[in-house]
Amino acid sequence: MEHHDPLAPCDDRRLIEAALHVRGNAHAPYSGFAVGAAVEDGDGRIFAGCNVENAAYPEGTCAEAGAIAAMVAAGGRSLRRVVVCGGGAQPCFPCGGCRQKIREFAAVSVVVDMVDPQGNILARRTLGDLLPDGFGPENL
């Protein structure tokens, strides 16, 4: 049996392209920090979301939450991969709340890529690296 490194680069750029594209639709008039995210579900379908800020600051939503909501709305219940695209040369890691949202639908071995606006991978982590000792559905 061949061993597959979960952190090895993925040849499929569709997920990255989806995150790059949706970032252009972000509604970030207050921070100016546009974020796009794309997720691949267990059936290989891709869903994207962007951050949506709100004048009542706590009412905004993160890009990852939007992508996950689109997946769930379409009947998806598991995440295979996640990509997050921020706006600069530094990786845009998911916030703590989004790490937990990803954990609801993903195993700790799922890979999360953080890319720049050109699609270059700036950081690659497993969900377990991002959310060590996380609380998931199997804990209930």
Rank of each mutant, 00 (worst) to 15 (best):
N51V: 02
M114W: 02
V35A: 04
A18L: 07
G44C: 11
F47S: 07
G119I: 07
A70H: 08
A74K: 09
D12K: 12
P137I: 08
V35I: 15
C98K: 03
F105V: 01
R77P: 00
P91T: 09
D133Y: 06
G42Y: 04
E138M: 07
V115M: 09
V84H: 00
A8Q: 13
C50T: 07
P29K: 05
F93P: 10
A107F: 10
A56K: 04
R45S: 06
R14P: 00
L140I: 14
A37S: 15
C50V: 02
V108E: 11
R14H: 13
G76T: 04
P29R: 04
H27G: 00
L131N: 07
A106M: 04
L79H: 09
A106S: 01
I68W: 06
P58N: 02
E2Y: 00
G128K: 03
Y57V: 15
P91Y: 07
R99F: 01
G97W: 10
R99V: 02
A69L: 10
Q90L: 15
P137S: 12
P94L: 06
V112K: 08
C62W: 06
D11M: 05
G134E: 03
G32V: 06
A26R: 02
G86I: 08
V84F: 03
K101I: 01
G44R: 11
D43W: 08
D116L: 05
G97Q: 09
G97R: 13
L20M: 10
A70L: 03
G42Q: 08
N25R: 13
I68T: 05
S78L: 00
G24S: 02
M114I: 04
C10V: 13
V83R: 10
I102N: 05
A70G: 02
E59R: 14
V72C: 07
L15I: 14
R125P: 00
S31D: 05
R23I: 11
G36N: 08
E40H: 01
D133L: 05
V52M: 10
V112Q: 08
H27F: 14
H4T: 14
L131K: 01
L140P: 03
D116E: 05
R77C: 13
G76Y: 04
V115C: 14
A19F: 03
C98L: 04
D12R: 15
R99N: 15
V84Q: 00
F33I: 12
R125K: 15
L140K: 10
L79R: 05
I68Q: 06
E104T: 12
N54Q: 13
D113G: 02
S109H: 13
Q118F: 08
M1Y: 08
C10K: 04
R99G: 14
A34M: 13
V22S: 01
A26V: 06
Y57H: 14
F33K: 15
Q100R: 15
G136V: 11
G75Y: 02
Q100N: 12
A65E: 11
C50L: 00
A48W: 04
A69P: 00
V111P: 10
C85D: 08
P58L: 09
E40L: 04
H3P: 00
H4C: 03
G76H: 04
L20S: 03
E59H: 14
I16N: 00
N120A: 11
A48E: 13
